[in-house]
């Protein structure tokens, strides 16, 4: 399979001496939906900045679809679409003009640019706002506008730096659907986000970056399999006795209130066993949820290991 992005020994030290990237190496396959996670200041945005040439690297190399970004500037930039973390379009321009201008920068003839502009503004629910000044848009609309702008030249690789930050749940889910659709249609996506549920739902592979180093780089499935236990909250239909015991070895139960318990299930016990046991005890389960997001649990544990 072709590699969409290949980063080798990438280092970046800023003028103030801060070492943002300490020689990271990373590969993302074509067609992947890849999560690049890390705490604030870990080096995610610097990595994206170097890929998109907004940040000068100190050393190392970056290739996009096998072409070096330093020597094949035109080809690599054509393949790349970037949605930055902060709003970076003119607040005084109209929505349509912003997308059309970007198309012009990519050398697209006016007719094609106009068609693509309409296509993506419609897909992202902004067509009705096309003649409005961008500053009048809500936060979520501004983010969608940046996605439309990044897609107008239909890049093979789309990088999104926290695209759903500050976006409400409904809108976030519609953006997930849209991103899943374009990924299915062949666009490779690299996503940074602080919403770990988002990364878990969307991404197939993941890298965790911390203090300028990649501390984990694997598939989402393998990473989640590393969880040696999960904590669930169960709501029951009947009242739970004060001395309630599930009777499953290694699975501990803590009563939260009369109708809910916190249950720690070790890796060796299946959820089916848990449900069977509740059934045997005549306790009907109304609902069940993870106490914390599974990826969040692992993410924090990895960061903790790295910092220790």
């Amino acid at each position: 399979m072709t590699t969409a992005i290949s980063i080798k020994n990438l280092q970046k030290t800023y003028a103030n001496g801060f070492e943002a990237l300490k020689g990271i190496s990373l590969e993302v396959e074509q067609g992947d939906f890849f999560a690049l996670l890390g705490p604030n200041g870990a080096g995610k945005s610097t990595t994206i900045g170097v890929i998109s040439t907004l940040v000068n690297k100190t050393s190392g190399s970056v290739e996009v679809f096998g072409k070096n970004v330093d020597t094949h500037v035109y080809e690599t930039k054509l393949d790349l679409g970037v949605v930055p973390q902060e709003v970076n379009f003119s607040q005084f321009e109209k929505v349509r003009d912003i997308v059309m201008t970007q198309a012009g920068y990519y050398g697209m003839p006016r007719q094609l640019a106009s068609e693509r502009c309409e296509k993506y503004l419609r897909k992202l629910g902004l067509w009705e706002k096309r003649s409005e000044k961008s500053r009048s848009l809500s936060g979520g609309m501004k983010r969608r506008l940046m996605i439309a702008r990044a897609l107008v030249h239909e890049p093979r690789l789309l990088i999104l730096d926290e695209p759903t930050a500050g976006v409400d749940i409904e809108l976030r889910r519609s953006m997930w659907e849209f991103l899943t659709e374009i990924n299915k249609n062949g666009t490779t996506i690299i996503l940074t986000t602080h919403y770990l549920e988002e990364a878990e739902q969307l991404c197939r592979n993941i890298a965790i970056i911390d203090e300028g180093n990649i501390i984990e780089n694997t598939s989402m499935r393998k990473l989640l399999a590393e969880l040696d236990s999960q904590v669930f909250i169960l709501d029951t239909a009947i009242e739970i006795a004060a001395d309630f015991d599930l009777g499953l070895e290694n699975a501990s139960v803590r009563k939260i209130d009369e109708h809910s318990v916190e249950l720690l299930v070790p890796g060796g016990i299946s959820i089916n066993q848990v449900f069977s046991r509740f059934d045997q005890l005549g306790i009907k389960i109304d609902s069940m949820r993870n106490k914390t997001n599974r990826l969040e649990q692992l993410f924090l544990s990895k960061l903790n290991d790295n910092q220790n």
Partner: peptide, 18 residues
Amino acid sequence: FSHKFQHSIEELLVSPVP
């Protein structure tokens, strides 16, 4: 300078304009 100030200059810098 306004493009720099609003960061909209990034639109140009990420695009393949020489």
